[in-house]
Nucleic acid binder design. Structure first.
Length: 553
RNA sequence: GCGCUCGUAGUCCAGUGGAUAGGACGUUGGCCUCCGGAGCCGAAAGCGUGGGUUCGAUUCCCGCCGAGCGCACCA
């Protein structure tokens, strides 16, 4: 049984016996919450239950605390103190700490992986960038945040399906084909036959695609009609762009379980979703178009689902897509979108509710805008003009590890200025190196220990670890699984980024304070065990972040 | 105009209904005869603003000010 549960049970007993003794009036007890105090001098655990219940008991918090503390006991308890406005601070006997550390040490491989939960999977859909060009840094942020979220959920024991929605239907794909067609004709000296499409893509990658087509197939497509050519180019370009996307993501340590094609929704699933909405009156016809009555669910206005020309809107596909997600039986559906899509949340949730599903089971997480600075100037992000910094270029400049950590360490909903010059010229100062350095240092220690035939062994005397830096490091290690659980529950992978940084800090402090090799053998073994756990935990946390943990730097 | 996200040291960011609000960069004072100085220890400096709820608000609610984004029969 977890020590926290033991503690909570003891507190409940104490309150109960205080009530029975007449020292506390009958009253509703608030939930007992244990927290780790901000300072070591304030004990191992603390509870604010006395303050929480001041109102119900009509008593001063400190007085309530006295009644409780005088009745709490246990052989694991060293002492109890009342502090500040009414906190009750618990000091555990030191053997409790060492026993817990030994338990971690004995099952080190499993440390950080929480037991699997028996539940329907959570779906996380992210990136889902249009396959019309390379990923840029904004997508990179979503990719890093999404994959870290998937990893942290899995570490916390949740079953997860990571999914990418491919927008391979609709206008933007036609524009892609037209853009390739234009470049194709241009390269073959026939630019006058097709003007550049109004919403075409100006990126250099389009020209590359056209060149590859010419290199492979020459000018044979000139014999086709424009429509036929467009059909061929559409498929060719889509295939290329998709392959490029996967390549970029793979280089960024981002992998998906499901690549979901929008085309598979057309036309049957879109139709059946519309039928379902029509039959319960949530879709109506006006001006020749079909409208979703989203205002019934708080939207600003109703939204067109099927245009008056019979062509479904993007929303129609998205309704069918989300219906499909819910029909697949996920316990939770998480979408990670760029913040510029936030206005879209309301209508999708409206559609979900209109279909009879619980819109609260859809969680939309927004990643705020990334602004790039180069030479102190803002770099404009514009797909239209093709002046973008791509994810591939970012990785080329600062590396996958630094880029991922930099994106993840900030909460998704805070805007980010990414100074490329700084990231390049001062990449040594990136916190990711600080963490990796701690890991490399430990690996170096083990290499030297091995040369001396020294290893931690199966039964290190952990109670020899009594230095303040050792105790601080032990504390940090013991809070890891709770941190994983919290990060998962809050969909906040940045907590793991911060944890890893703080853990590295505790290690570096310890390292400067305590020698590991060259001290008494029993102590050396205990310290080797401590750093072994530390290395494992750093590796595990960096694994969640998708950042490597090199043994040498 | 309406909506969404956000305002935390000189700068960039964490974080929290409670005990002295953390860290990095920058500024600044120390630390290697020694396991990797990409390190450690110390100093100065901060919750935009006005109300409200609460025993207690930087955190929750409302107004104001400021920033970004969005308000299509585009995707």
């Amino acid at each position: 049984m977890d020590i926290k549960e033991v503690l909570i049970a003891a507190i409940k007993n104490a309150v109960q016996s205080a009530i029975e003794a007449g020292a506390l009036p009958e009253g509703e007890l608030p939930d007992i919450v244990l927290e780790v105090p901000p300072k070591k001098e304030l004990g191992d655990f603390a509870t604010n239950v006395a303050m929480q219940s001041a109102r119900a008991f009509h008593m001063a918090p400190r007085k309530i605390a006295e009644e409780i503390t005088s009745r709490v006991s246990g052989d694991w308890l060293d002492r109890v103190e009342i502090a500040g406005p009414g906190f009750i601070n618990f000091f555990l006997k030191s053997n409790v700490v060492y026993d817990a550390l030994m338990a971690i040490y004995k099952n080190l491989d499993g440390f950080g992986q929480l037991p699997e939960k028996d539940m329907a999977p959570i779906q996380v859909e992210y990136v889902s960038a249009n396959p019309t060009g390379p990923l840029h840094v904004g997508h990179g942020r979503g990719a890093a945040a999404g994959s870290a979220l998937v990893n942290v959920l899995r570490a916390a024991g949740y079953p997860v399906v990571a999914e990418y929605y491919i927008n391979d239907a609709g206008n933007q794909i036609n524009n892609l084909a037209k853009s390739v067609d234009h470049r194709y004709l241009e390269l073959l000296g026939k630019a006058d036959e097709a003007s550049f499409p109004e919403d075409g893509y100006h990126g250099a990658d389009i020209i590359d695609t056209a060149q590859r087509i010419i290199k492979r197939d020459g000018d044979k497509y000139l014999n086709m009609t424009a429509d036929e050519r467009m059909g061929v180019f559409k498929e060719l370009a889509l295939k290329e762009k998709l392959a490029a996307l996967k390549e970029d993501l793979e280089a960024f340590n981002v992998r998906f379980d499901v690549w979901f094609s929008e085309r598979t929704l057309h036309p049957e699933k879109v139709q059946s979703a519309c039928e379902a909405l029509k039959s319960n009156g949530k879709i109506y016809e006006q001006d020749g178009a079909l409208w979703l009555a989203s205002t019934q669910y708080g939207d600003d206005k109703d939204r067109v689902v099927i245009r008056d020309n019979g062509v479904p809107t993007y929303l129609a596909a998205d309704i069918a897509y989300h219906k499909d997600k819910f029909d697949r039986g996920f316990s939770k559906v998480i979408n990670i979108w760029g913040a510029d899509h936030h206005g879209y949340i309301c209508r999708v949730k409206a559609a979900i509710a209109a279909l009879g599903y619980n819109p609260d089971n859809l969680e939309v997480l927004l990643t705020q805008m990334v602004r790039l600075l180069r030479g102190g100037e803002l770099v404009k992000l514009s797909k239209r003009t093709g002046q973008t910094v791509t994810l591939a270029e970012l990785i080329e400049e600062v590396g996958t590890d630094a880029a991922r950590y930099f994106f993840i360490m900030r909460s998704m909903d805070s805007q980010l200025d990414f100074d490329l010059d700084l990231a390049k010229s001062q990449s040594n100062e990136n916190p990711v190196y600080y963490i990796q350095y701690a890991h490399a240092r430990i690996c170096s220690i083990f290499r030297q220990a091995a040369e001396n035939g020294l290893e931690a062994g199966e039964a290190p005397e952990l109670s020899l670890l009594t230095d303040a830096t050792e105790l601080a490091l032990i504390d940090k290690l013991q809070s890891y699984e709770e941190e994983v659980a919290k990060a998962a529950a809050e969909y906040a992978p940045q907590r793991i980024a911060r944890y890893a940084y703080e853990l590295a800090g505790e290690f570096h402090s310890f390292y400067n304070q305590c020698r590991i090799l060259g001290v008494d053998e029993k102590l050396a073994k205990a310290r080797l065990a401590l750093v072994k756990i530390t290395a494992h935990t750093i590796r595990h946390a960096l694994g969640i972040l998708g950042v490597s943990a090199p043994e040498k730097m």
